[in-house]
């Protein structure tokens, strides 16, 4: 009797909780449904239309916008730039983040001060970062003032050379030298992120493990190479995925620091998308770029999130 009563009360509490939960969740869920998924569908619709002037034209164009994009000199340049930007950016962020993480993890004095200094650029806008680095890497005002004493005067983001280039479609495929300047600025801003991730990871490596390796006669360097860094692999994967999705979307930094550059050596899809849509009124073209960006980001992000979701259990 008492048990049944208890059960009934419990059920009532549960349904009440349930309704509270639903009421708490519904606004966010509806907003996301409309403004994210609804609008993505709408963008997809525009991307297969003929709307290339100020006057809306929703007549069906099939995949024509996509086909002409992939034949376009500017978009091919964007793809090349994105590939090399992503590779160098991720590489630099990982090397600097891990290196600084290991340094700071040596139980130094003022550890939290260091961490805060390296994290600070993350709190700035990419616009400020772009302004600062446009200046520091400006061939006539910045670091070159010091470098010229050593006889090196790189042209940084004004360089139009493509390293190791070969003909590919409309463009020369290879490493655009100018992109390296942008990579430096972006890595300066985001190193704090990988540093924070690696620091957390390094804390998780048990002391006994290092001690055991030391007993076996391993040098400090070997301990890091053979024991610690392999243990940090999951963190490295997270850093790669998150930085990759950032670099695929990058817009602000390029916009503020270099713009498209001569011969589009520093152009990226997001800048192209913005300019063709809002400066050129070529909505269909802009929508097609947006959908391509969306698909590429999703390819990186969805499996990753799916995995980490399963990891929660």
């Amino acid at each position: 009797m008492e048990l049944a009563e208890h059960k009934k009360r419990n059920r009532r509490k549960m349904t009440k909780d349930h309704w509270t939960a639903v009421a708490f969740l519904i606004p966010s869920v509806i907003l996301i449904l409309i403004f994210v998924y609804g609008f993505i569908a709408w963008t997809g619709y525009v991307s297969v239309s003929n709307w290339s002037t100020l006057v809306p034209d929703f007549s069906f164009a099939g995949l024509q916008n996509y086909i002409s994009l992939f034949q376009d000199y500017r978009f091919q340049s964007d793809l090349r730039n994105t590939i090399f930007f992503t590779i160098f950016f991720i590489g630099l962020v990982i090397v600097m983040g891990l290196g600084l993480g290991i340094l700071i993890d040596q139980k130094l004095k003022g550890e939290s001060l260091f961490r805060n200094i390296f994290l600070f650029p993350m709190a700035l806008s990419f616009i400020v970062t772009g302004v600062v680095w446009q200046w520091l890497l400006n061939p006539s005002t910045g670091f070159n003032q010091f470098l010229k004493f050593f006889g090196i005067t790189p042209k940084w983001y004004t360089d139009t050379n493509i390293l190791a280039g070969f003909e590919w479609g409309q463009i020369e495929f290879g490493v655009p030298v100018a992109i390296i300047a942008v990579v430096i600025a972006a890595a300066w801003q985001m190193t704090g992120f990988s540093l924070a991730m690696y620091l957390a990871g390094l804390r998780g490596v048990p002391d006994e493990l290092r001690e055991a390796a030391r007993m076996d006669g391993a040098s400090e360097f070997q301990i890091y190479r053979k024991v610690v860094i392999p243990m940090l692999m999951p963190i490295t994967v997270s850093v790669i995925i998150i930085m990759a999705h950032m670099s695929l979307k990058i817009f602000d930094l390029i916009y503020a620091m270099t713009g498209s550059g001569a011969n589009f050596v520093t152009d990226v899809p997001a800048v192209y998308m913005y300019e063709t849509t809002f400066k050129g009124n070529n909505y269909a073209n802009g929508a097609a770029i947006a959908i391509i960006m969306l698909l590429v980001v999703a390819v990186f992000i969805v499996p990753y999130l799916w995995n980490s979701r399963k990891g929660d259990h």
């Binding site: 994210v36 993505i40 963008t43 979307k249 998308m273 849509t277 947006a290």
Partner: peptide, 15 residues
């Protein structure tokens, strides 16, 4: 809900 955070803004800016 989280997955939406990763999507490029370009994907919804025209609508």
């Amino acid at each position: 809900i989280i997955s939406t955070r990763f999507l490029p803004i370009a994907g919804i800016i025209i609508p």
